[in-house]
Simulated scan of single mutants.
Amino acid sequence: EESFGVPESTRIPFEVQVETPQAIVGVKGEAEPARILAAGQGRILSLHYGTYDYSASLGVDAAEQSMEHPVADHAKDVLQVATTAVGVELSDGSTNRIPVGSPEQILDGWRIHHRLVTRHLRRAVRQGWDLHAHQLVTRHLATIAYFRASWEVSAERLRDYVAGDETRWMDEPATAKAMSGYLLRAHACGAVTDEELATTGVSSGDLRTLLVTGRL
């Protein structure tokens, strides 16, 4: 950067793959992801959980290695706390059960992938790996289904919140932030149309304000 005169405002960013237990808990019990992010000095865009290397390093047998194994959940919980605090993305790992072969084998692979994508969306992990082009089908379907599932009640609750109506929900600013983020992501991925988003009675600009402050 110095040699080529790259401005400090456009420093080269990078991403970190987390594949060892030492990257989760240090020798003195420290939460290592926070130390990794601090060492990155603002350059780190995301931390990626490495499903198979991480679980293998803990002695998990191959048949039990999975994005939903308890050791995976613990690691991602620690990563999520560290990344959320500084606005860095967290990416879930991958499943190596790819949807290829006979129709039955493809369907089985799709069911597994769909379940895992939905699971990490529910855990507020918005990113993930796909190892095979066929997994893009269930990535798309699971994402759209997740954001279609609750957009209407989220829109109703947010509309009541902005209007000060507490007859059905007594939501707080923190929840308003969460609902705004959900609706904006639903719209961005195509799960919610412009017309549907407008039923909140709140403009997209105001939704972004709510996302930051929880208030208008």
Rank of each mutant, 00 (worst) to 15 (best):
W129S: 01
I106Y: 01
W110C: 15
V100P: 05
T84D: 15
E2K: 11
P7F: 03
F4P: 00
P99E: 04
G201Y: 02
D194H: 05
K177V: 02
H187G: 05
A34P: 11
I98K: 05
E1M: 12
Q127F: 13
V6K: 11
Q80L: 14
P99Y: 02
E64Y: 02
P7Q: 05
S150Q: 13
S150A: 14
L90D: 09
E15L: 08
R119N: 15
I24E: 04
A145K: 03
D92Q: 12
A191K: 08
L197V: 03
A178F: 00
V100L: 13
H140N: 09
G42R: 11
V137P: 00
R123W: 11
H132T: 00
A75R: 01
A82R: 00
A62S: 12
A62G: 07
R215L: 00
L131E: 03
L211Y: 03
I112A: 12
R157H: 00
P7E: 02
A145S: 08
W110G: 13
D160Q: 13
A142S: 13
D92N: 14
L107F: 08
K76P: 05
R159N: 07
T84R: 15
E30I: 05
D108T: 15
P103C: 12
A198Y: 06
V6T: 14
A142L: 08
A72H: 02
S9N: 04
S91K: 05
T167Q: 06
A178Y: 01
E32H: 11
E89L: 15
D77S: 13
A62V: 10
V60W: 03
W169E: 07
G42S: 12
R168T: 11
Y182E: 05
Y52R: 09
A39Q: 14
Q22F: 10
Q22W: 11
Y52V: 14
L121S: 08
M67K: 00
V81R: 07
T95N: 10
Y161A: 06
H140K: 11
V162W: 02
G164M: 01
A178T: 09
H48M: 14
L141G: 02
D77A: 14
R126V: 13
W169Y: 12
P21M: 10
E15V: 10
R115P: 04
A176R: 00
M179T: 00
I106V: 12
V71M: 08
H74T: 11
A145T: 06
R139K: 10
A163M: 03
S91Q: 10
G101I: 10
H69V: 04
K28I: 06
T83P: 05
L158C: 04
L79V: 09
L211A: 07
I144T: 04
A145E: 11
V125A: 01
D165Y: 04
A124T: 12
W110N: 15
G29N: 07
T200S: 02
L183N: 06
I44L: 07
T193N: 01
A31T: 15
L131R: 04
S66V: 07
A31R: 15
V212Q: 08
V117M: 08
V137A: 05
L184A: 06
L79N: 06
E156P: 01
T95M: 03
G205S: 09
E196N: 06
E2T: 12
K28L: 12
